[in-house]
């Protein structure tokens, strides 16, 4: 079996059968991106690697709960990585002992953020056409106040209350900005998918027209 040809869902299905090679393949495919996210949140490589190790470990342990027909492996992996990175960041800020694997010995009782989701169809389409460049472009088009809230919560690990204090804005305003940012982001990414589909449809139509003319 050529594991490199398997998509993420097929790899996770194999991992659920304790397939070591499938797990290694998934790691090789996504370790760099997840470590990038962890380092972006934590600002530190060593802790980032601890987070990535724990995130993949949870994929290994929770793979049987992943529905290959409905879930998105990358979204699941990013979700776990982000959750662990935020927890680690807050422990460090609180001068608490940083133990990444605090929950790792109890994978049967993971937090909601560790569990794989059944991703709705529109989101699946977004993820299928996803690229780092598209996401960066979509983020860049957000209004600065909205982008700022996303930056401070998702990447810097501040709570909504801390963001409100830092920006000297009411909590409700922060919530609204975050909501608008995510809505806009979704529209932008879905739109890019729509553009791709529209262009593809137009090209097909042109091809058929040319064939008919002949």
């Amino acid at each position: 079996m050529n594991y490199m040809l398997l998509d993420d869902a097929a790899l996770v299905a194999q991992i659920a059968r304790e397939d070591r090679t499938a797990f290694e393949t998934l790691y090789d495919r996504h370790a760099g991106q997840t470590l990038g996210l962890a380092v972006r949140v934590l600002g530190e490589r060593n802790l980032g690697e601890d987070v990535v190790q724990e995130a993949f470990w949870r994929v290994w342990k929770l793979s049987k709960q992943f529905d290959v027909s409905k879930g998105n492996v990358k979204a699941w992996l990013f979700g776990i990585t982000h959750h662990l990175a935020i927890d680690t960041l807050r422990r460090r800020k609180d001068n608490r002992m940083v133990e990444i694997d605090a929950e790792s010995d109890d994978p049967d009782a993971p937090t909601m953020l560790d569990l794989p989701d059944e991703m709705p169809e529109p989101l699946q389409q977004i993820w299928e056409k996803m690229s780092s460049e598209k996401v960066r472009s979509a983020l860049a088009t957000l209004p600065e106040p909205q982008r700022q809230v996303i930056e401070m919560t998702y990447f810097q690990g501040l709570t909504h209350k801390e963001v409100a204090i830092n920006l000297k804005q009411p909590a409700g305003t922060i919530h609204t900005r975050a909501r608008l940012a995510l809505g806009k982001l979704r529209e932008l990414l879905a739109g890019s998918v729509l553009v791709v589909v529209t262009v593809a449809a137009a090209l097909i139509q042109i091809v058929f027209s040319l064939i008919n003319q002949k």
Partner: peptide, 15 residues
């Protein structure tokens, strides 16, 4: 599903 997309925006780091 939308929030996780944000993870894609950061550049990868070689482990």
């Amino acid at each position: 599903g939308v929030v996780a997309v944000l993870g894609e925006s950061v550049p990868p780091v070689a482990p």
